[in-house]
Design a protein around this nucleic acid. Sequence first.
RNA 1: GAGCCCGUAGCUCAGUCGGUAGAGCAUCUGCCUUUUAAGCAGAGGGUCGUGGGUUCGAGUCCCACCGGGCUCACCA
Length: 520
Amino acid sequence: MFEPHDQFLQRQQKLREIEQLGFDPYPHRFDATHAVPEVVEKFSAGSAENLDADQPRARVAGRILSLRSHGKTGFADLHAGGARLQAYFRRDTLGEKAYQLFKLLDLGDVVGVEGRIGRTKTGELTLFADQLILLAKALLPLPEKWHGLADVEQRYRQRYLDLIVNPRVREIFQTRARVITFLRHFLEARGFLEVETPMMQILYGGATARPFVTHHNALDLDLYLRIAPELYLKRLVVGGFDRVYEINRNFRNEGTSTQHNPEFTMLEFYQAYADYRVMMDLTEEMLTGLVRELTGGTTITYQGQQVDFSQWQRLSLREAICRYWLAGSAPDPADLADAAKARQVAAAHDRWAARHLESARLADVPQEASAAKASEHLFEVVVERQLIQPTLIYDFPTEISPLTKARDDDPTLTERFEVFAGGLELGNAFSELNDPIEQRRRFEQQAREREGGDEEAHQMDEDYIRALAYGLPPTGGEGIGIDRLAMLLTDSRSIREVILFPLLRPLRESPPAPAEPGEN
RNA sequence: GAGCCCGUAGCUCAGUCGGUAGAGCAUCUGCCUUUUAAGCAGAGGGUCGUGGGUUCGAGUCCCACCGGGCUCACCA
């Protein structure tokens, strides 16, 4: 007898035997009476006696992830919709031909089974099959059932396998979907209109990042994949859509990390006649509501730490640096407003950090840095990782916030805040700068920084300034990183765990694929 | 972009001091009509990521490359 050693060849051989028995290994449709989770939910409370009396029937489809054959009978576990249902097959019930089909089944095959719902003598809810239909033959073997698929690279490259054998992965993406659904409902309930704005843009803006470039052939035009939808959304507020939001992909041409994927999903929303204080309240309500929706409570665990969304703290950037200071006696917030003193503070921090490199990072503030730049560096190095509890950090320097309205009492600071929880930066919000003349000045400042070598400085956008010149109402705007929010709410350490197909370098050799038929 | 670590059967992993490659699950054969990480008996399966080098001899030591992970840098 022909006994190929390769499992792919063995399964092709079985496929031919199945066809010789007269079964179609890839039929066109199957009409189930129940989904597997429905059967489990509907009958899990039924006792053996009640099920015996009622003799309920079901016709279900699923993938076989376990097979236990006992001679003239056998058990198979059907998985579908995240649930498992055991089916029992007997030669004397199925008939000779269908039982031969059962003997030819492999782990991974998709089958339809019809029969009576009951319990085995060990009490397990079981579909006692009287019909078996092969719905799709699996030609490649699945990863092992007990340890699942652990190789991170293979999990990402072949996410379908990850989803089949690792139930937790399925849950992560279900949670991610629930996050997005909640945010949509939350915003819709408050009168926000969902819109879609260009992803291919002639000018890129709304964030500081390097873009991807693409080309439109018919127009012979280079285009940028957007780094943010911000400038288009505010044009819509000018146009009279007072409350708009968009949940969609942004693209930034930067390195990957556990917190960065080149394409990622952002929620941006804008509310006319609101300022950043209104957005602060809205943010707290939205994220606390989200945690409540997902968990029923207000506390989650992220990477071993409790994060309690029933309490939010609000700190200015400079207060936060002083509050979370680790390097000896803390500076005074006022020192951070002065460039020379701020640089001294940063230097003091780095002298300490150099002796604690296992737990601390250097701020590395440049010689000529402004107070703003020094504070920004210190904040990232000192504070960010310590912001485990939900926190809003406000009063960002004007210099690093070219689209943000400045404070009336201190034009070096803006009405801007960022959202943190679990040590992750989740969002960024501000009172939108709506003075077209001031906006032009800010763009011109950015252009100078660009000339000075800052590739990420903002581009001049004349049409945006023209839109502002028609009158943008006072507006609060905010961006929330959906992927990071999903990380926080699924206790995921890496952003790749919450993106179905994260970007990986291609392999030189293509993975094994089904060979041409007709061999052997 | 830099540093550190990893890559062995379909999957999960061992492999000591450099001496012809191992286990469990999966697969194949036989037995088995209520099992559930089913069981019993037997069998097959390897370009040790790729290419060089050292050596009588390399999965093991050295170099380069490929892929991945983590940390750092930048950001949301």
